[in-house]
């Protein structure tokens, strides 16, 4: 699989990527800046389309899927966490977590509210539910973002430098949550990080250099 940005001077983001990630794996994508880590993650997250090759999610080739279909897959199967929390500033913590739920629907509003509250409780944010994101600390916001990513019980969590703006302690909390999700819920977690210490805590590492997959290794704990 590869992705080339078109233009007068085509830019290759990633190329010759052949990667298979199993259910419940906790994968770290590492590499120097500009190596294509994030690009690979966006491709895996169906936010971007590869220019060659394809992405197969749960046995389904997504190359043929239309934009609306990809959106539906993102909604129900994938959850994103970015370096920046991207919480909507006008919505409360609970409101933010509920956005994906309300889009997906499937249950009455009080039920969704209860589920969102449970998620926040689980991440230690139960008492922050009514606050606005601006009233939280950086680490708390990122945990809210994780709660939002988990809102529709996705099969895969995709995180792009989720700890980039956090102090060591908060970063550790985020990784602990990821590890627990993978272990207990069987959720696949793919995270981009340049923190060696954190990458070592994952179950598998994928190392990119100049858009190419140069090394893979299984971490033994």
């Amino acid at each position: 699989m590869g992705r080339v940005l078109p233009g007068p001077v085509p830019v290759t983001l990633v190329e010759d990527i052949d990667l298979s990630i199993g259910e419940g794996e906790f994968v770290a994508i590492t590499g120097p800046s500009g190596s294509g880590k994030s690009s690979l993650l966006y491709l895996l997250g169906l936010l971007d389309r590869p220019t060659s090759g394809s992405i197969i999610l749960e046995g389904r080739d997504t190359a043929e899927a239309g934009a609306a279909e990809l959106a539906a897959l993102r909604l129900s199967k994938l959850g994103f966490v970015f370096q920046f929390h991207f919480l909507l500033p006008e919505f409360t913590v609970l409101g933010n977590v509920m956005i994906p739920m309300r889009k997906l629907g499937g249950a009455p509003e009080p039920e969704l509210r209860k589920r969102a509250q449970a998620l926040l409780d689980d991440l230690g944010l139960g008492d922050q539910a009514a606050k606005l994101p601006s009233q939280l600390s950086g680490g708390q916001r990122q945990r809210v973002a994780i709660a939002r990513a988990l809102a529709n019980r996705p099969r895969v969590i995709l995180a792009d430098e989720p700890t980039g703006n956090l102090d060591t302690k908060s970063a550790q909390t985020v990784f602990d949550i990821f590890a627990r999700l993978a272990r207990e819920m069987g959720t696949t977690v793919v995270t981009v990080t340049h923190d060696e210490g954190l990458a070592a805590q994952t179950s598998r590492r994928v190392h990119l250099v100049d858009g190419r997959l140069v090394a893979q290794g299984v971490n033994r704990h």
Partner: peptide, 16 residues
């Protein structure tokens, strides 16, 4: 634009 981006990544469609 950030909100739009995150909403789209969450799975809101272009039509939404």
């Amino acid at each position: 634009s950030r909100d739009i981006a995150i909403l789209k990544s969450i799975g809101l469609t272009e039509a939404d």
